[in-house]
């Protein structure tokens, strides 16, 4: 009958930091998804050289006719994992214990 205290899977104090980082990563990947894949003509000027670098990777597939669904799905999956965990940590950090 030894009762063991139960703790949260991740220390509560880490939630704010985790939320900032996961959300930042998630938003960058989202930006790549939208700008590179869906707005191929505009927006290069907006994000400058960083995106230009990414553009080289996606160049062949960025036109509307020959965009790759696989790549888009992969990008959006990764982005949604980061955004999902990020927003969960944001909720927890702000006191909404789901």
């Amino acid at each position: 009958m030894a009762a063991k205290p139960i703790a949260s899977p991740i220390p509560v104090a880490l939630y704010p930091t985790l939320s900032v980082f996961t959300l930042a990563i998630g938003l960058v990947i989202t930006a790549i998804f939208f700008i590179v894949e869906h707005l191929p003509f505009k927006g290069w000027q907006v994000l400058g050289d960083m995106i230009r670098f990414v553009k080289v990777i996606y160049e062949a597939t960025s036109s509307r006719k020959n965009r790759s669904v696989g790549k888009e799905l992969a990008t959006s999956a990764v982005a949604s994992v980061f955004l999902g965990f990020g927003s969960l940590f944001l909720l927890l950090a702000s006191g909404v214990y789901v």
């Binding site: 998804f33 959006s76 999902g84």
Partner: peptide, 15 residues
């Protein structure tokens, strides 16, 4: 998982 699928659905809608 619910949050992740929510975001994923958003992306799928865009696609």
């Amino acid at each position: 998982l619910m949050l992740i699928s929510g975001f994923f659905i958003l992306f799928i809608t865009c696609i």
